[in-house]
Design a protein around this nucleic acid. Structure first.
Lengths: 251, 251
DNA sequence: TTTGGATAGTGTAAATTTGACACAAAGCTA
DNA sequence: TAGCTTTGTGTCAAATTTACACTATCCAAA
């Protein structure tokens, strides 16, 4: 928790926390980085929760979200979007929740509102076992999550919906892919986020017409089938597009 | 401020406030209900601000927004959508801001984060002078607003953008119109929200094809030109539509 | 080396949607 | 009754969307 020593002199605000829905994509499906709260909670409710923490009084909300992400994964400068504020007075129900909150320095009796963010990371840049902060963290496919601690399941639903809407307007999906990727991977990504099948040929036609991909003269290697061409996201062309007011990346 | 006596026994949370962007439509342009903070602030900065207040510890955020709206306008059951949380540690800059916050019982030294909402009301249902709470409140056309107190201008921008995106997905604009309205009024409404001109015939064709309007056998009266037919929003047909997964109300 | 399994990559035709555009009808006022 | 103002309407061309099936390429196993 002392990962960012500059912050430690400031005071934690006991009323406001930040929770992060950290999305990843394992090239098959959308996943979320969850932390396991361990035995302490297992008898009472869901062990899995979104990573989060109270905010410091001298940081703004976006910075707090960056910090939580950094503490857990060591990643910086990650795509980040606010989902919204969640704050039912009774959002902390269980004795186990209170115990656990104490263990991370929160005031379990205070009413806490949380500001939720979602972030998009490239899974290959981060494996949970690589970081000492992430001993209890792991990627879980979104579709397999049926419950979470506190009101985190509700937050996850809201984040999925925000992401879905956002990707119809901006091609932010590239933040979830490695630098080089195939059209099929991009296709799968859009299908998982939009949660519906998309026709292969129509998808390819549409994405190619946008002209925001650079085709690398390079093929996939080691796959037991016809290897795919690799592409890279072309930031410059994307900027050109948006600056002309274009905003129809919808599917 | 004691409009809702049930709440008065609970404690105010000094760290969390709710601000409301109350949109209206004067049949010409989009407007926002602002309060005038009066002389106390005039020497230091903008007098106009969004209505808002601290939240009580026993109410959830949506309820708090409803309450603020009710206190100011007396309106209940209004369309309400969260914009997000705003919370730069230095969002309260000026001495005048501190004075004013004291006057509404806030703790000016505490770091306050605010959760912003936007709401859509029918202007004809509410005239500022009708309510004793609203002596200092008035409708201001959105396009004429150049600055607001605190970070409220930023919040307003965010709210406008949210509304713009939302109306592309759901036909929520009817909440801004009287029960009976003309297609031209609806047309103007979409133009003000989307902030761009829309071709009259194409707009009409599109809105009619959605089949969510009931044509009343009734004409406008007293207008110095050809009177328009009046329409009503058809909630049932809209529900049918959305339940089939339709979500393209975009323009 | 041949064969089978798996995914990549490609084109077309029909239906739908969009965008551009102009004039007659209806009511009010002077 | 003449003039002003806004309503209400149709068409055509272009662009976009949808549905749909087969060959090419690589790896692995026989």
């Amino acid at each position: 928790m002392q990962h960012n020593p500059k912050k430690i002199n400031s005071e934690l605000n006991p009323n406001v926390s930040v929770d992060c829905v950290i999305f990843g994509f394992d090239l098959e499906q959308l996943t979320v980085l969850l932390i396991d709260r361990g035995e302490i909670s297992s008898a009472f409710g869901p062990r899995l929760a979104l990573p989060g923490n109270l905010i410091y009084d001298n940081e703004n909300l976006d910075m707090a979200a960056d910090r939580v992400l950094d503490e857990l994964t060591g990643l910086k400068n990650i795509y980040l979007e606010q989902v919204g504020a969640f704050g039912d007075p009774d959002r902390i129900h269980k004795e186990s929740d209170r115990e656990w909150l104490k263990s991370i320095r929160a005031e379990p009796e205070a009413r806490v509102i949380t500001v939720a963010y979602y972030t998009l990371v490239t899974m290959s840049q981060y494996k949970p076992q690589a970081s000492s902060f992430a001993k209890n963290a792991d990627w879980v496919p979104v579709n397999e999550i049926k419950e979470l601690a506190f009101d985190h399941f509700e937050i996850l639903q809201a984040a999925k919906e925000k992401l879905k809407q956002k990707i119809k307007i901006q091609p932010i999906g590239f933040n979830l892919l490695p630098e080089k990727f195939t059209l099929s991977q991009l296709h799968r990504l859009y299908e998982s986020i939009l949660d519906k099948p998309l026709d292969k040929r129509n998808f390819r036609r549409k994405i190619q017409k946008l002209d925001i991909l650079t085709s690398l003269r390079e093929k996939q290697r080691g796959v037991p089938h016809k290897p795919s061409l690799l592409y890279r996201f072309n930031e410059e062309k994307y900027q050109e597009l948006t600056q002309t007011g274009f905003d129809n990346f919808g599917f």
